[in-house]
């Protein structure tokens, strides 16, 4: 499964949810869906904006974890 490490990156960059939502032009509610891992998909455009805002790579935000070897 894909884990969203957005909160980790946000903490590293010391940026608040509202601030980030404003920068990447999405609603705080949608950012919350993304942060909590409830999102079913992410648009390339959103990922691009996130990477630009957090000055990171997509791999810093998204992580693949093999369900079988989760433990």
């Amino acid at each position: 499964m894909i884990i969203v490490n957005l909160d980790v990156m946000m903490a590293k960059r010391k940026i608040s949810s509202n601030e980030l939502a404003e920068i990447i032009d999405i609603t705080p509610a949608n950012l919350s869906i993304l942060k909590t891992g409830k999102a079913k998909a992410i648009r390339f455009s959103t990922l691009e904006k996130l990477c630009a805002a957090l000055k990171c790579q997509p791999g810093d935000i998204l992580e693949f974890v093999d369900d079988d070897n989760k433990e």
């Binding site: 869906i33 079913k40 998909a41």
Partner: peptide, 8 residues
């Protein structure tokens, strides 16, 4: 619809 709503 759910997939669309949860595509950010």
């Amino acid at each position: 619809r759910e997939e669309n709503d949860f595509t950010i």
